[in-house]
């Protein structure tokens, strides 16, 4: 290390300070909107229409769970939260299972045109969901599952699969051949090999995929907006119908939005690493 002059040390001290100030300001830009939503949801509804959420700093005693109480007493909202779970869990599990089966086949089985089939699936990665909305709406209408939970779940599975197959095939391909051969020599059949060796070894990739797909489906509004009806709509659609009267019903929208965010945020903070690796692998989606 060469000796630094006093001047350059001073310069780096000042620029270090500037970097900190800049990052703090940016951090505030990123935090304040969310804090605003949280505090809005905790204020009495009648206050929301006349003043901003920052007023709570001068009178913290007015914070209340009133809006949450009211919202959770509304059966439309609680039903829609249940629907979100009923859509998200199967759509995630199915994508993981079906994607693993196909990923394993693409990685380790031999059949004619294997690589071409796989590349075709990769090509589907970037197909926008919009392309399928009208055709699938007509298709589901014809077979009578338009407006049902099954329809939305199927749609999400279909559009989750290209990424699942892509991610898992690449991960499974890295499994050492010797492990699979040893299991085979021990007399394991195809299914046993898959469930006892491949799936456990694929844990990290499956976790990344599962979290990614879970958040994707949980946060979806567009697909559900089209394929669900009043009985099967998830929370995003239930809240969306309220946005039209924005301003008069912040007491529904703010706590509702926050409730819809809680699970994704918990998942995000609990599984940051898996989420990030899923996002990185999915940079092409």
């Amino acid at each position: 290390m060469s000796k630094e002059s006093l001047g350059s040390r001073l310069a780096s001290f000042v620029s270090g300070g500037l970097v900190r100030v800049f990052l703090i300001v940016v951090g505030l830009f990123w935090l304040v909107p969310t804090i605003g939503l949280l505090l809005s949801s905790l204020r009495p509804p009648e206050e929301m229409t006349v003043s901003g959420w920052w007023e709570v700093f001068s009178k913290p005693s007015e914070l209340t769970f009133e809006s949450y109480d009211k919202l959770l007493g509304n059966s439309d909202i609680t039903d829609s939260i249940l629907n979100t779970v009923l859509i998200t869990v199967p759509a995630t599990v199915l994508v993981v299972v079906i994607g693993s089966l196909a990923g394993y086949a693409f990685a380790w089985m031999e059949f004619p045109g294997r690589d071409w089939w796989f590349l075709a699936v990769v090509g589907l990665l970037v197909v926008p969901v919009q392309v399928a909305l009208i055709p699938i709406a007509e298709l589901f209408g014809n077979i009578g599952i338009f407006g049902s939970l099954i329809g939305v779940i199927l749609f999400h599975v279909g559009f989750g699969l290209p990424f699942a197959v892509f991610l898992l095939r690449n991960f499974f391909a890295e499994i050492p051949r010797e492990l699979l051969e040893a299991a085979r020599l021990d007399g394991a059949g195809e299914l046993r090999l898959f469930f006892r060796v491949v799936m456990p070894l694929g844990g990290p990739a499956i976790a990344a995929l599962g979290i990614f797909q879970f958040l994707w489906v949980w946060n979806d509004m567009l697909v559900a907006l089209i394929f669900t009806d009043a009985d099967s709509q998830p929370i995003t659609v239930a809240l969306q119908t309220q946005v039209r009267q924005f301003g008069n019903n912040i007491d529904i929208l703010a706590p509702g939005a926050f409730i819809s965010m809680v699970i994704p945020l918990v998942v995000f903070f609990a599984f940051q690493r898996q989420f990030v690796s899923g996002v990185m692998a999915g940079a092409v989606k």
Binding site: T34, N219, L239, L253, A257, M261, L265, F275
Partner: peptide, 12 residues
Amino acid sequence: PMAISMLAAGII
């Protein structure tokens, strides 16, 4: 914000 829905971000 990547973890939350665009709906929630929209309301925010």
